[in-house]
Design a protein around this nucleic acid. Structure first.
Length: 467
DNA sequence: CCTGGAGTTGTCCTA
DNA sequence: TTAGGACAACTCCAG
């Protein structure tokens, strides 16, 4: 019987996983492994990863072996020690992982080990999404229409009893990683109230979304006070559920809600394509004229933003939701992003870094592509004069301020008329609601009109100097 | 190569 | 109160 390493990466599941399906089809036995690269992970993600690996290990009868270190060396040693003849993994699309895969391929060749490489984390391979002239798309709509409209999504199920696990004498189980992944700071413990990492939790989340969130998604997705978003992002990021299965579960895409949700999956694809074709998406503005943009990098502003103390309740609610739950509603991500980059004129890298460290769904492709979009540095970014007004957005998308009251309870007694912008509420209203600006809730740290104007001026300066 | 139409998610002012 | 246009040009994409 052939012995196969399955190198788990961002595909921490058994169902709808091509490495597993083909392993069973080949009738090979498996040595399942995971190799940690803790430097590339944010603090919140690490806690999720630990839980997710723990669940996967259970599904593999506690035979998942974990390692910390250089993937190439580790795999080489395993090939030698266990007379491995096959290796299988699912592709990743960031530069570092691509390099790593190449080195592992070289090792496989050296030992005459057969490779089985799949893509179980995107609906399409980036190489197959190119324009007719062979270059990658830079605009979402044609990328979507020409590649994904009418695409079939196959789902398949695995009989886990068919997986033959190699006996592994080395005593390297999941506990090895606990010290690397679980921080001393215990803020993450409250995440348990909101999330169930692992394949089973992912399946439950999908069913719940299909039952309760999908109807009305097209409109409701913009409302942080409603429950229309899927919250599948951390599950999808770690591959606890496959995007193919998610797409497949929609059935025929025959209404606006399904179509809208499907395009969000394709936005994820688009971000991964941007990263794949622009490996330095994290450091390089897609529009290089922004390289000379006069970002302020004001430490006090950044601190107020991170801690949810800007004096704009929708922004503060979002930042506190992030800290409290490891997640932020999509609409609110745009609002806080625009606020940091435009009203505070702070570099998008700082926002990206904070999100990477605190989001459970932190994903280098989505994170960098989205921050580039909101900062206006992206290839297809919004025109620069599109600056979100956090008060207007709040009134529009959290009309009854239920979201604000949930995460910024100290201003909860303010009436709906004033709760979106306490700094402009009459003194008597503030007094009656127990709000003391600067004491128990901050005064707004910037004037919206002035900071908007400041951003617009900075952008128009940029235009002059670059032409 | 040329050309015309189009581009995730807004805001503000004016009539 | 509300609807429509201005905001600016530029790049992308497909025929």
């Amino acid at each position: 019987m052939e012995k196969c390493i399955i190198w788990f990466r961002n595909d921490l599941r058994l169902q709808n996983n091509l490495t597993i399906k083909n392993l069973i089809d080949r009738n090979s036995s498996v040595l399942p492994i995971y190799i940690l690269d803790s430097n590339s992970l944010g603090s919140a993600s690490k806690t999720w990863l630990y839980r997710s690996l723990y669940e996967l290990d259970k599904q593999l009868k506690n035979q998942l072996k974990v390692y910390d270190g250089n993937a190439v060396n580790i795999i080489e040693r395993l090939i030698e020690n266990y007379q491995i003849t096959q290796i299988s993994w699912n592709r990743k699309f960031d530069y570092k992982s691509i390099q790593e895969e190449q080195l592992v391929k070289n090792i496989a060749k050296k030992y005459n080990v057969r490779e089985f490489i799949y893509n179980s984390s995107l609906l399409m391979n980036p190489e197959d999404t190119l324009k007719k002239d062979g270059t990658p798309y830079r605009v979402f709509t044609p990328f979507y229409k020409n590649n994904y409209l009418g695409l079939n999504h196959n789902a398949f199920s695995i009989n886990t009893n068919d997986i033959i696990i190699l006996e592994n004498k080395e005593d390297k189980n999941i506990d090895l990683l606990k010290d690397h992944l679980i921080p001393e700071h215990t803020w993450y413990e409250k995440f348990d109230r909101y999330w169930e990492p692992g394949e089973i939790g992912a399946q439950k989340r999908l069913r719940e979304f299909l039952d309760k969130g999908l109807l009305g998604y097209a409109e409701g997705r913009n409302r942080p006070d409603l429950d229309n978003v899927s919250r599948l992002s951390p599950h999808i990021h770690f591959g606890e559920i496959s995007p193919n299965e998610v797409a497949n579960s929609l059935g025929d895409i025959d209404n606006e809600d399904k179509e809208r949700f499907y395009t969000e999956l394709v936005w994820r694809e688009f971000s991964h394509n941007l990263l794949f074709f622009n490996p330095k998406l994290d450091t390089t503005n897609l529009q290089d004229k922004f390289n000379s943009f006069p970002w302020l990098k004001n430490k006090a502003y950044l601190d107020a933003w991170q801690t949810g103390n800007t004096g704009y309740p929708i922004v503060d609610a979002g930042m506190r939701e992030l800290w409290e739950t490891g997640y932020m509603h999509n609409r609110v991500r745009m609002i806080v992003g625009s606020f940091l980059v435009k009203n505070l004129l702070h570099h998008w890298h700082s926002g990206r870094d904070w999100f990477k460290d605190t989001l459970l769904d932190a994903d280098d492709a989505n994170n960098n592509a989205s921050w580039q979009w909101v900062a206006g540095t992206g290839a297809d970014a919004a025109p620069y004069f599109r600056i979100f007004n956090p008060v207007t957005q709040s009134q529009k998308f959290d009309p009854n301020a239920e979201y604000i009251r949930k995460f910024v309870p100290e201003i909860g007694d303010l009436p709906n008329t004033y709760i979106h912008d306490p700094s402009n509420a009459p003194k008597t209203v503030l007094d009656n609601s127990g709000v003391k600006l600067g004491k128990n809730y901050p005064s707004s740290i910037v004037n919206l009109k002035e900071s908007r104007q400041r951003a617009l001026s900075a952008f128009s300066e940029l235009k002059k100097t670059s032409s």
